[in-house]
Design a protein around this nucleic acid. Structure first.
Lengths: 328, 328
DNA sequence: CAACCGCCGTGAAACGTTTCATCGAGGAGG
DNA sequence: CCTCCTCGATGAAACGTTTCACGGCGGTTG
């Protein structure tokens, strides 16, 4: 049905090799024939079959990006950064999300390996799968995003969550707040735990009340804050992410507390809505797009010269963004 | 480097045809040899090269989803719906976003066609490209998402925005509100214009103040609301999307207006944050996941029996979700 | 016992591209 | 005039899979 390179060759009165050259190394072919071939391509509406090209070449011009949740703004921006770099290099990005399910992750790893992607950017679900290591052993380079697996000998890009917690804590200290609460998702998540570590480091000696919720959701932040406000007299709340903080904000407003006068509030991630909340939210920003870009660059480096490539573990520092919710 | 089907055949002491049968039609091969082959596959870490498979088969087991903006929750949910159906059918989804740029859309269309995707789900950028029609003429079926191109003879799935505006208008009427404002993005966007049409239809005779902003952003909603509150005495605001509404909410709170007592507020899209806003937001919900599912199903229908396939234009009705921001 | 059938397995062709050794035609240099 | 070189184009091999016509082998039927 679809026109092949052979049809083009016949139409243009040249050999298939020449058509291929026009496609891949236009300089190698004389202007006259090149024009002839291009005309034939246009007339026939020829589109290269990349399956055949990949088959022959042995590797594809695409890479896989396997994230936990595309609804998460963090990964959206990471994806944007990855895409920037990839498209610039003429690569396509196969965007997949595992939804935090190991089974889905496995299925996508299978698909991506079958497609012979050039490399893989991945945030693995908790408890790294053996399929990923198998894939790497078979020669597909991978870069970890927002994860560092201690033993693994591969590149990774992450953000220093301890530093983020410290940033928040130091900021609250500088405001003179004394009774600080930390509302968090499951402390089994390294991020949540690290941010607490940082907070404690910065607020030495200050009361730090910790309220753990089942997930990083606004609704749970709301409930946790209502309970907290009833039992404890806090003058500052740091949340493990902005969603929780928005819930806390709602709880504060609905119980008549003023933010920041009565309660200072800091979130984490600096999602778009943080700036547009009822009281614009102070937050910790991660260089998300930059993370994606860096990860992609590391991957390309490894692809291009696997021999003299040294694995790197890049760790970015987050940044404090001050808004009304902690302004005096 | 990577093990091929031939290596497996040698290892298992069978022919390549048999290995292929184990992979694709396991029932056709005796349990004994099947076990032999599977063992060989496991030992060698064989992974099928889908380029070769596609080349031979002529079509891939993947489909393209090309959206305007993956940061938009609407498309995230649509993507989720599409994925559900696709994965269930054993198809992979190539997720691409054009960022509303025609050039990117073209590049992705090229890539997808080269990959020989089985079909395409697309929300084209304004002023449909000729490449899309070319692609369809060459035999790749496509379904339009959230768009209906009058002349185009293809399937489409959309939502009735006029009905959505009507829903909002009727609700405000039932609350007895008299002085209604509409805050919107550019009225050149069909969605914004349609929602206004619906609103006017439902609120016949009531003052409808219209404030147009440059984009559907919370910050602009905030500014527009501040201006509006200064100049006009409104008791209800309907916004073309939830982001604008969140901005309006912030403006209301910061100027001491009570929601819903002084001003009732309705958004559109029912994004996740609508429920968790400082005052939970009444909104118009679109069946987003369902849209994705339906679009994928239409596409598969067309792929599976192109002959007796009649193009359908599915239009969903939106739904009113009442929360505090309009509760009396 | 011959003829037939069903079951398993085989081997080769075909898919569309890239790559590479080769070849022919001109032009430059001796 | 012969040789050598370069430039451009050629044609066939190879990539890894699927598919399909075919064959061997045991068992069933008449």
């Amino acid at each position: 049905m679809a026109a092949s390179i052979k049809d083009v060759a016949v139409r243009a009165g040249v050999s298939v090799g020449t058509v291929s050259n026009v496609l891949n190394r236009p300089a190698k072919v004389s202007p006259a024939t090149r024009a002839l071939v291009l005309a034939a391509i246009a007339e026939l509406g020829f589109v290269r079959n990349s399956s055949a090209a990949q088959l022959r070449a042995g590797a594809s011009r695409s890479l896989g990006l396997l994230v936990l949740d595309m609804a998460n703004p963090f990964f959206q921006d990471v994806a944007k950064g990855v895409e920037d770099v990839a498209v610039q290099q003429g690569y396509a990005v196969l965007l997949c999300n595992s939804d935090e399910q190991a089974s889905r992750e496995n299925w996508y790893l299978q698909v991506l390996e079958e497609q012979r992607v050039r490399g893989l950017l991945i945030t693995p679900v908790a408890g790294g799968s053996e399929r990923l290591t198998a894939l790497r052993e078979r020669g597909t380079p991978a870069v970890l995003v927002d994860r560092t697996i201690p033993g693994a000998d591969c590149c990774s890009v992450a953000v220093d969550d301890v530093a983020g917690g410290e940033l928040a804590g130091a900021h609250l200290m500088s405001l003179g707040r004394k009774r600080i609460a930390y509302i968090t998702g499951p402390l089994t998540l390294p991020q949540c735990a690290d941010r607490l570590t940082g907070l404690r480091r910065a607020t030495q000696g200050r009361t730090v009340e910790v309220a753990e919720t089942a997930a990083l959701k606004a609704g749970l932040g709301y409930q946790a804050a209502l309970r907290l406000f009833e039992t404890t007299d806090v003058d500052a709340v740091f949340c493990a992410n902005d969603l929780l903080a928005l819930g806390v904000l709602r709880a504060a407003i609905s119980t008549g507390r003023r933010v920041p006068d009565d309660v200072a509030l800091i979130g984490y991630d600096d999602i778009e809505f943080a700036a547009d909340a009822a009281v614009p939210l102070t937050s910790i920003r991660q260089p998300r797009i930059h993370i994606g870009r860096t990860a992609a660059q590391l991957l390309f480096e490894e692809c291009d010269s696997p021999a003299d490539h040294a694995h790197q573990q890049v760790v970015f520092k987050p940044e404090l963004v001050v808004r009304e919710s902690t302004r005096h």
